[in-house]
Design a protein around this nucleic acid. Sequence first.
DNA 1: GTCTATACACTGATAGAC
DNA 2: GTCTATCAGTGTATAGAC
Lengths: 199, 199
Amino acid sequence: MIQKNAPTLELAPKAEQILDGAMKEFLQRGYAATSMDRVAATAGVSKATVYNHFGDKEGLFEALVKQLAERKFAQVQRSQPLQGDPKVVLRQFAMTLMNNVGKDSDYKAFVRLIIGESGRFPHLAQTFIRNLFKPALTIVTQYLAEQPSLRCTDAEAAARVFLGTLIHFVISQNLMYGDEVVPIEPERVIDCVLESLFQ
Amino acid sequence: MIQKNAPTLELAPKAEQILDGAMKEFLQRGYAATSMDRVAATAGVSKATVYNHFGDKEGLFEALVKQLAERKFAQVQRSQPLQGDPKVVLRQFAMTLMNNVGKDSDYKAFVRLIIGESGRFPHLAQTFIRNLFKPALTIVTQYLAEQPSLRCTDAEAAARVFLGTLIHFVISQNLMYGDEVVPIEPERVIDCVLESLFQ
DNA sequence: GTCTATACACTGATAGAC
DNA sequence: GTCTATCAGTGTATAGAC
């Protein structure tokens, strides 16, 4: 009766299944508007199974956020180290970041959720910062520290200027739909920040 | 029986009263977790009165967001025009922005709410951009366009670099509690962005 | 471990008296 | 315009059978 084939080769198949359903619901509706009923239905399991695995709604939410943060962290770590001419390398980096974040609906929903709930779940916001912003900051800081053409001698501060410019651009133009209110070509901002940071 | 004294001298006393209660609830709990029952109780009116004034929950939320956006807009417009030595003027501007936004709990909650709900209420996110980000962008762009020492000839792009750096700093360090994960003195970032933008 | 069934509180919204 | 009372629906969480 019990099918032993194709257990998807994962440690906890039902847990993965539940997290998949939880992701769809939480990203689409937000934390408070997501019901455990719907998570169970979307995941294709009973509600009691959800509670057995994750304790309560907060436990499920925390497990989901940590999984998403770790998945994206793996992507960042896997990216090739920066090397070469700054203006070429960093322009490529900027375009990748803008396309990777600004046009990925799931990722945009994830960022909205984390920021929106950061007042009630400070620990999850910090997990996001630790797993995603901090590694990016470290990579860019190390790269900038090796560039003699960098105008600002404080490489970490320069990395914050560069990343802050890019991330705020995505937040204001894409997450908040500012591209219809204060439109501008991304290239203009990238050109300007690179022109400013390097001689 | 009916007290005629102290009608608070406002056009719609009950409406203001309801919006005050709605502000407390929505800013603290978010949109979905806020109940109309609690808004009515906090405002000191009956629930039916809330529905008579604002139609439904979305109507109340939109009225609240527009009021908050307009109040903050008035503060921005009232600020003195920028003039004088760029590094002095913009350092002062940056410190004011960081203290005004980063340490005002109500304003932080407002920004979290707007970003968190921007996927479900794009129009309200755009109202926020139009009333708060766009005016700031305009003021800084005009000021930068007059500075001969500006390295980047594209004043609007430079304004986005400057404001993006500052706003992302507040979001990551204050809204998302990144100051405990990736701490840094604000002055280092301000120094760096000014050093980069100006000769 | 997983399911069905259910407890119990609370939700957004409305009807009708005043 | 404001209130009390209430509706139908849904929320989180759990008990008990398998």
